[in-house]
Amino acid sequence: MIVVVGAGYAGVMAANSVARGVSEPVVLVNERDTFVERVRLHQLAAGQSLRVRPLAGLLRGPELAVGRVVRIDADERVVHLGDGRTIGYDTLVYALGSSGDLSVPGAAEFAFDVGAYSDAVRLRDRLAGGGSAVVVGGGLTGIEAAAELARPDLKVSLVTDRVGAGLSERGRSYVLKVLERRGVSVREGVRVESVHGDGVVLVGGESVAADAVVWTAGFRVPGVAREAGFAVDGSGRMVVDGTLRSVSHEEVYGVGDAAAVRVGGQELRMACATGLPAGQHVGKVIAALRSGRAVPGLRFRYVNQCVSLGRGDALVQFVLADDSARDRVLTGRVAAWYKEAIVRGTVFVQRHPRVPVSL
């Protein structure tokens, strides 16, 4: 039996892709029975309604097992769930994803991880009556959260070392102009030292008051792979070869944020833009092995980075194959339509794993 653990973008794609190419049972294990559109959670936090997507409606062949993965016994090839159940596997696809890195003092206790569904709901409720919020982190997630949360009854500030550090100067300039237009106060060149119930303290001692602290500064992966004895890198991501197979356990594959995937010597970033192609590819690899065909390596190149700036605005930053920014960008309402098409497309391609993925 083939078991896929984790039903994020990479996991659902992997489960459907694997099931399409093999005759044996495929089981997808996830802690909830609905699919979380993580790239839309800033919308949920801002009070917008998101469509509920039952995983049963996304799966094309795999069986769904609902439960939280707490441990993997690599020697016995058994997945242990939080309720005491166990699921044995012959082949395992590891796709447990990532969460916000809340290692800064006070962040785990007081900050809201906008990449987690439960935190997005709590943040929505906390800010329902207005007030103030400070967003920590100026990457794409932080930019989207700050722009989406900004509204007349909510004072939003963004604190970071640099807003949109990976964008072109043209793209970064546009983001800063939109944030200013939406009333977001931006502080660059600062780092957060600690988080408290009433705001954050910056390195140097300055306090920034807020009713809610929104954390988007970095990600971390679960410790399940390390604890199982799989080969992992310094951050705990499973180390895989060019076919996405674990370098320490030949019956195990890794996809998504929890795997350190390299193409042409470059480690791919954590994003659905990389998780979806990897999830699709692992199905081709397993099918090839089952039929005795040559096992293909992952071929991948980046195309763009899409950043929503509220519902009617966005930035599409076109990039080179290695994800470095080109000078070319798309902005405004057309970019917002483009971004929305990409987000809707992620759900479509998971249901139809034959469709080529290029995000």
Results as ranks from 00 to 15, higher is better:
189 G>H: 07
190 V>L: 15
190 V>F: 06
191 R>E: 13
191 R>D: 03
191 R>L: 02
195 V>H: 07
197 G>P: 15
198 D>F: 15
199 G>F: 03
199 G>I: 01
199 G>T: 14
201 V>H: 03
202 L>R: 10
202 L>Y: 12
203 V>Y: 08
203 V>L: 09
204 G>Y: 12
204 G>L: 08
205 G>N: 09
205 G>S: 07
205 G>C: 04
206 E>R: 08
207 S>H: 11
207 S>T: 14
208 V>K: 12
211 D>T: 00
213 V>P: 12
215 W>C: 12
216 T>F: 05
218 G>A: 13
218 G>T: 09
220 R>I: 03
220 R>C: 06
221 V>H: 06
221 V>P: 04
221 V>D: 01
222 P>H: 12
222 P>K: 05
222 P>Q: 05
223 G>N: 14
223 G>A: 14
228 A>P: 06
228 A>T: 09
228 A>V: 08
229 G>A: 15
229 G>K: 11
230 F>N: 10
231 A>G: 09
232 V>L: 13
232 V>E: 11
232 V>W: 11
236 G>E: 04
236 G>K: 09
236 G>T: 05
237 R>V: 01
237 R>E: 10
238 M>F: 03
239 V>M: 04
240 V>Y: 00
240 V>H: 00
240 V>L: 02
241 D>V: 00
241 D>T: 01
242 G>R: 09
242 G>E: 13
243 T>R: 15
244 L>M: 11
244 L>G: 12
246 S>D: 05
249 H>G: 00
249 H>A: 07
250 E>W: 00
250 E>A: 05
253 Y>Q: 07
253 Y>T: 05
254 G>R: 04
254 G>C: 12
255 V>W: 03
255 V>F: 04
255 V>K: 02
256 G>P: 04
257 D>V: 07
259 A>Q: 09
260 A>E: 06
260 A>P: 02
263 V>A: 02
264 G>K: 04
264 G>H: 01
267 E>R: 08
267 E>A: 00
271 A>T: 14
272 C>L: 08
273 A>F: 10
276 L>C: 06
278 A>H: 12
278 A>K: 10
278 A>N: 14
279 G>I: 08
279 G>Q: 10
282 V>C: 10
283 G>P: 15
284 K>R: 15
284 K>L: 12
284 K>A: 14
285 V>N: 04
285 V>A: 08
285 V>L: 04
287 A>V: 05
289 L>H: 00
290 R>Y: 05
290 R>Q: 14
290 R>F: 01
292 G>D: 03
293 R>H: 07
294 A>F: 05
295 V>T: 12
296 P>G: 13
296 P>Q: 11
296 P>R: 08
297 G>F: 13
297 G>Q: 10
299 R>Y: 07
299 R>D: 10
300 F>Q: 13
301 R>W: 01
301 R>H: 11
303 V>I: 13
303 V>E: 10
303 V>T: 14
